[in-house]
């Protein structure tokens, strides 16, 4: 049944992992290596969002609390507050919004510092996620990559991964030391989130609305070129890793949680065939479940 999805991955030149499940019928699934543990890249921002919202529910964090990000200490990156030249002050919930919609590294690491890794680990366990580990944020990821590539700045380190003429340094795509999860665990998180089992109605709504405001449409959403289909998602990109996890809602309301992880053979920064293959694999999975 999943041979078609494997063929999509093979054609795109990627190793792929996928889990798709109907929200209303959890026994209906489509799986390709769904229990493989894969480094999450920026998909870790989804469990972080869930943890943040839970702490808001518990009254431990005030979503309106103002935080100032200083250019000299914040994490760099291609989007959002990461790119700003001057100090920025925003509320925690706006940082969460920027983290989720733009995959803003500076906002994400600032939130992770506030939520804290050990607390987040406890929360993820309480959510029933047995195979999800948030071990470090983006800054930690880039530091590890610089160590492995023996480079002094993140851009030079990423350039090593993008070069098709040399071998990837050992361990850069290994899940052991990185934030990692399985496709099955990510759809479990989405399914429980969408069902309102993890958070209060207000925070559930905030998390869903935030994911529906995802600006990147080149992956999951590209498989559903119809405005009647709603796609809420979170992407992840690091070197040859390209992921997206999300919820696809058909006209009429039937919804599916989908996690697609890929590791491309090519190193190039821009790989539109792989982005499209993520959408294509998701669409095939949904069609199989319909």
């Amino acid at each position: 049944m999943n041979a078609r999805i494997r063929a999509v991955f093979e054609d795109a030149g990627v190793r792929g992992w996928l889990h798709a499940v109907a929200l209303d019928e959890p026994d209906l699934t489509v799986e390709v290596d769904a229990d493989g543990i894969v480094p999450l890249a920026s998909v870790y921002k989804l469990p972080l969002l869930a943890g943040f919202c839970r702490l808001v529910d518990l009254g431990e964090l005030d979503p309106r609390q103002q935080l100032t990000l200083d250019p000299s200490t914040k994490t760099g990156g291609p989007t959002g507050l990461s790119t700003f030249a001057d100090p920025v002050t925003a509320s925690l919930r706006d940082l969460a919004l920027s983290m989720m919609t733009l995959s803003d590294n500076a906002s994400a690491d600032a939130l992770l510092d506030i939520v804290r890794l050990p607390r987040l680990a406890e929360l993820l366990k309480s959510f029933g996620l047995q195979r999800t580990w948030v071990r470090r944020g983006t800054a930690g990821n880039l530091r590890d990559l610089q160590r492995r590539t023996r480079t002094n700045d993140p851009d030079a380190a990423l350039a090593v991964l993008a070069d098709n003429d040399q071998t990837d340094p050992a361990g850069v795509y290994e899940a052991v030391n990185a934030s990692a999860s399985s496709a099955r665990d990510m759809t479990l998180l989405l399914r429980r989130l969408w069902a309102g089992e993890l958070l209060s109605p207000e925070q559930t709504e905030f998390a869903k609305a935030t994911m529906h405001r995802q600006v990147f449409m080149h992956r999951l959403a590209s498989g559903f070129p119809h405005d009647g289909v709603r796609v809420a998602g979170k992407t992840g990109t690091f070197g040859a890793l390209r992921h997206e996890v999300g919820v696809v809602t058909l006209p009429g309301g039937t919804a599916y949680a989908i996690a697609v992880f890929t590791l491309a053979a090519r190193g190039d920064v821009r790989q539109p065939r792989v982005d499209a293959a993520i959408g294509e694999a998701a669409r095939v999975a949904v069609d199989l479940l319909r």
Partner: peptide, 16 residues
Amino acid sequence: LHPVVLDGLEAGPVSL
């Protein structure tokens, strides 16, 4: 040929 999906295999350096 490189690049190729390795599927868990070990691989040596890239020769050009």
